[in-house]
Design a binder for these strands. Structure first.
Lengths: 129, 129
DNA sequence: AAATCATATAAAATTTATTTTATATATTAT
DNA sequence: ATAATATATAAAATAAATTTTATATGATTT
């Protein structure tokens, strides 16, 4: 039951649903998401951590950036995620995506160049070194 | 998004998942659920209200009893409910059901005799008279 | 090597959710 | 009519989650 609860708790927040929606089309770094949602960075990091601990996201280090992406390894989680994404109306997620596109245009080049292997998630929010 | 969030928030609680699991096999009154979960009645009423406001339950008055049952009218909700129920391990829900069976055996007869039509749910927790 | 950038985390402040306790209302039983 | 039962709700107490603010760490650029 614990894992189930973590999943539902992770999905029970507007900010986190918006993050999942943004990641629908592929991985993004924290600053991308921060720009898209127009929020302060520690807040975004907090929510990313909740999603990661629930097993809904995976992260990987890319130079000084940390990339996050959906983890749809379990069919159960996938159903829940898709159900969640289905319910997000266009007017909110559209604005998020517009801010993201604008940010990406002005973003310094050289990003994405030296990504390392995904960091394993031990389910407790602490990285395995 | 509001409705989606209400649904996930409603599912993000162990007590409420246990209630949904109990209602899987049919409607029950508040005292049945209270006995099964071994909790105080106002607590159970509180959680029933959360579930009802999220549109996951319907209620109907049966004499002095108030019966609650799953509302699986929307396919989306149904998927989420089923996903939730799937994840509840047997050892917890089995105990709940044992207490329920015991309570039902000793319950005064005459229940279920004069149920009235389901009370309409306006989505805000207040009954439509 | 110093400055800058991206991110995480810790602590405090705030908000939201849950639980408890007491009580009110309606229904049924005596 | 009175007592007992089933439930809801309100208020207070408690607990949990979120947000803010400040700061630390590691990577990159200059």
């Amino acid at each position: 039951m614990k894992e189930m609860l973590d999943t539902f708790r992770a999905l029970a927040d507007e900010t986190r649903l918006r993050i999942l929606k943004l990641l629908e089309t592929g991985e993004l770094c924290v600053c991308d998401i921060t720009a898209a949602l127009d929020m302060v960075q520690p807040k975004v990091s907090f929510h990313l951590k909740v999603l990661k601990n629930a097993g809904l996201l995976r992260d990987k280090k890319c130079g000084k950036w940390m990339h996050y992406e959906l983890d749809i390894s379990h069919i159960l989680k996938r159903i829940v995620i898709l159900t969640a994404l289905e319910g997000i109306p266009d007017d909110i997620s559209k604005k998020d995506r517009e801010r993201l596109e604008y940010f990406l245009k002005n973003k310094h080049e050289g990003a994405f160049k030296d990504c390392v292997a995904p960091i394993e998630n031990n389910g407790k929010g602490t990285k395995v070194k």
